[in-house]
Design a protein around this nucleic acid. Structure first.
Lengths: 121, 121
DNA sequence: TTTATATACCTAAGTAAATTATGTAATTTA
DNA sequence: TAAATTACATAATTTACTTAGGTATATAAA
């Protein structure tokens, strides 16, 4: 997968889990490749998940009991769909809240320093 | 230093450099401990920088030419003040912009999934 | 038609930025 | 005078990523 990120990838670190779980919370079930494409489209290419990060994460979340899998044959290929467990749903909600709170705090902090642009978060 | 974060630390990862540089851009010069206290107060304890993360970062930024140091004797102790170089000032501005952009993108993305709370970022 | 691109999964090695833990020492407060 | 705060530092470990590969089917373009 090509990566030509608008952001230096460091910011995305730590938000991957939040993105994946919240996406599944909305869509019900998705497969890995679908997730990468959806995020890419919805952010106009600004956030692009790498497969090397995504697939191990999905496996980890499954092992942790946040996700369930379901294999579906499409022709000769097998797609692996993921959906949230109850625990996963709860985790998704709390991670999203956490990010929003964090983002507000950070923006407030940064605006205190650089008063050039107005932000109303 | 005690840490009792409101956020799971993962979110703060990758934003430390942004916080430190933008803080120095505002304040002109600060020393390490002062930075930790300032951020803690200004975020009501929500963001607490660990010394194990901060000091190595400061050293790295100095080595990279973004910061200059100045040692000041306070009684028998020596404080190490940091201030931005020209390159550091530019870096600060671009990192802040980058975070704001990223935060907007993320909030838009997450709001598309969880329509429970309104965010106007 | 065969070649390139897209779809779709996977893992292993290496990196970078943090955490955790520890250390030193001066200064201030209880 | 003991405890907490101020103020610096580093070393070992952890972890989440990047980078770089690998496999294979399906589709579009040349």
């Amino acid at each position: 997968m090509y990566i030509c990120l608008m952001y230096s990838n460091e910011l995305i670190k730590g938000t991957l889990k939040t993105v994946v779980l919240s996406l599944l919370a909305k869509k019900g079930r998705m497969y890995g490749y679908e997730i990468t494409q959806h995020v890419k489209e919805e952010t106009e290419g600004k956030i692009q998940l790498t497969e090397g990060a995504l697939y191990p994460l999905l496996h980890r979340l499954e092992a942790d009991g946040l996700l369930l899998t379901e294999k579906v044959s499409i022709g000769k290929r097998v797609r692996k769909y993921y959906r949230l467990t109850k625990e996963g749903t709860e985790s998704a909600a709390s991670l999203v809240e956490e990010f929003k709170e964090f983002s507000k705090t950070m923006n407030r902090l940064l605006n205190n320093y650089t008063l050039t642009t107005a932000y109303h978060g």
